[in-house]
Design a protein around this nucleic acid. Structure first.
Length: 576
RNA sequence: CGGGGUGUAGCGCAGUCUGGUAGCGCACCGCUCUGGGGGAGCGGUGGUCGUAGGUUCGAAUCCUAUCACCCCGACCA
């Protein structure tokens, strides 16, 4: 490709509405342009990258026995009504009517279509297991699209669905997909981590998210290298911190704490360590009209996802109103405590082991010190309620003295695999004959990769102040030839054209910058677009028999003897 | 969905308070000089000021409506 023939729509200035670095660089390097909120056009540079990602995903899926299909982007409401999701899915499902007034939706996912299809196509256990995938444009009408293609409404996704007659088979394919995803992200050249994930409302036994690691990631991940454990912070189990509960050593006492309503204020007012305080949070209970108390050590944070999993707690988690709090505790938030509280009390593991602790007195502006479970108030129900923090013991360890500490890192979710079980096969009546000739429901697995999101995530992970730094595998071009004086010097032109032809014939994607631009502009554009390899051909160095090579990641260039340049580049590009 | 903000040339912005018929930088086109990190000079192209209605002799500017886009919020005793 020659730049004179190629839409290089680079921008020097950053568009005002781009917040994160990948969005800014995608706009500036001319990869995408916005058409509407969360809806983008992919320009040639951007599309080249996305196709690279797609092809790697496709090759690895094929390698693992996946069969590619293409389902419609627009789906009839009937399918969604059959699964019950027409009513359940909410505002993210973009609905529309055709000219006859029939309801349709732009597909945000394709379980209904594939399950219906396979209920007809698969008749015998001999056809199983089977795994079908597509690379498709999907639409989710996000509440708030942002961050460019990272959280867009229209996006490209690879989704795969596998079918089985028993759990063993499902687990085998699940494990195979886990390995396939590992291969995909390795080939993409991205730093990533597979993390245990919430199976959510879908149920099923196993679920893993694949995250590209980047400080700007939206998700926090708890990681322990010693036990190779990684989990979404929302899910990571929080073990008890602090010693076993010691015997009471203090009498319970009332102290006036005028105007002190936060843990921080209480600690400084009473000169008490925060580890000796508890906070009591009131939330709605599962039973209509009930209120439940959740207790955490003062310095810990509630993990709402964990709390709502407790059978006594309403799901989704809902905070009690100030009126309900007054009725249940007899005071305002900030003075609630566990003594003489006529509620179910659920306490985090690291709160149940406290003794002689400080809590509210259920009377405004009064607190209690020296409080002890069992003596001053009933023993609470113990439950894992808190959010893990950096330095917590890894849940895989059973030894308090272990050095397997969790660290918190950030990631961008780009893949998700989970076992669906029979949720959709039941709804869509997808069964086939087993080896006994009896009809049996098929169980399913589901495996997604956010193709367009990977493009943005790769940039979040790989950039510097000059622009994008693509991993070789997904760069729009592998190599850029930058001539100094292409239009002026016959010699320069001849060498560049020759290099271009030779490299192209090796299957290397080369872009030759034949614009009549100043070198600085050509360098800046190449760096912005993140082309991994660059050769500069100028008369001065040619006179010395040299051609300059620079890697995008390197600080400086190196001179290569002209007669060796092809060998050098073949080796640098892995084509030797 | 709640709160805040912004719509003026492809991009970044000024002008709006105090109405007088639209401007700056970058980009783009032409010429000249230049030629290894976004160079310089001269000359140009490009905007019904988001849209609709109103007030006025006159509206980017004031009023009303509407649309679009952006940011913040769903961690709290």
């Amino acid at each position: 490709m020659r730049t004179s023939n190629f839409l290089l729509s680079t921008l020097k200035e950053t568009p005002a509405d781009a917040e994160i670095i990948s969005h800014q660089l995608m706009l500036r390097s001319g990869m995408i342009r916005k058409v509407a909120a969360g809806i983008y056009t992919w320009l040639p540079v951007g599309l080249r990258v996305m196709r690279k990602v797609e092809n790697i995903v496709r090759e690895e899926m094929n390698q693992s026995g996946g069969q590619e299909v293409l389902m419609p982007s627009i789906q009839p409401a009937e399918l969604w009504q059959e699964s019950g999701r027409w009513d359940m899915y909410g505002g993210e499902l973009l609905r529309m009517k055709d000219r006859h007034g029939r309801d349709f939706a732009y597909g945000p996912t394709h379980e209904e279509v594939i399950t219906t299809l396979m209920s007809n196509e698969i008749r015998s256990y001999k056809q199983l297991p089977a795994n079908f995938y597509q690379i498709q444009t999907k639409f989710r009408d996000e509440r708030r699209p942002r961050f460019g293609v990272m959280r867009a409404r229209e996006f490209v996704m690879k989704d795969a669905y596998s079918f089985h007659l028993d759990q063993t088979s499902l687990q085998e394919t699940y494990d195979l997909m886990f390995q396939t995803y590992t291969n995909i992200f390795n080939r993409l050249g991205l730093g990533f981590r597979a993390v245990e994930a919430d199976t959510g409302s879908i149920g099923g036994n196993a679920s893993h998210e694949f995250h590209v690691l980047a400080d700007s990631g939206e998700d926090a991940i708890a990681v322990c290298d010693k036990y190779n454990y990684a989990a979404n912070v929302e899910l990571a189990e929080a073990l008890q911190v602090g010693d076993e509960r010691s015997a009471p050593s203090q009498e319970m006492a009332r102290v006036d704490t005028p105007g002190q309503h936060t843990i921080e204020a209480i600690c400084s007012f009473l000169s008490a360590p925060v580890e000796k305080t508890i906070k009591t949070l009131l939330v709605k209970g599962e039973e209509q009209g009930s209120v439940v108390a959740l207790v955490l050590r003062g310095d810990h944070e509630l993990n709402e996802l964990k709390a709502e999993k407790h059978p006594l707690v309403a799901s989704p988690l809902t905070w009690a109103s100030d009126e309900e709090i007054l009725a249940a505790a007899g005071c305002a938030p900030g003075s609630i405590g566990t003594v003489a509280l006529e509620l179910n009390v659920i306490a985090d593991r690291s709160a149940t082991n406290l003794s002689d602790f400080i809590c509210g007195a259920n009377q405004n502006d009064v607190h209690l010190t020296g409080v002890n479970w069992g003596r001053d108030c009933p023993e609470p129900i113990e439950f894992d309620l808190r959010k893990v923090v950096e330095g917590d013991l890894c849940a895989r360890s059973d030894d308090q003295q272990d050095d397997s500490r969790l660290s918190i890192t950030r990631g961008i979710e780009v893949g998700h695999i989970f076992q669906l079980g029979t949720k959709y096969s039941e709804a869509m009546k997808a069964s086939c004959l087993d080896s006994n000739g009896k009809a049996a429901l098929m169980s399913m697995g589901c495996y997604g990769v956010g193709v367009s999101r990977i493009v943005a995530a790769a940039i979040e992970q790989n950039n510097d102040d000059r622009g994008i730094i693509w991993p070789d595998a997904i760069a729009p071009f592998q190599l850029v030839i930058t001539p100094i004086g292409y239009k002026k010097s016959e010699k320069v032109k001849a060498v560049c054209d020759d290099l271009y032809t030779q490299l192209s014939s090796l299957g290397i994607e080369v872009i030759l910058d034949d614009r009549n631009e100043r070198p600085g502009i050509m360098f800046a554009d190449a760096d912005l677009m993140g082309i991994p390899h660059r050769v500069v051909v100028g008369e001065k160095s040619l006179d010395k028999g040299q051609i300059e090579y620079k890697n995008r990641r390197a600080d400086s260039a190196e001179d290569i003897a002209q007669e060796n340049i092809m060998d050098f580049l073949k080796s640098a590009l892995g084509k030797a």
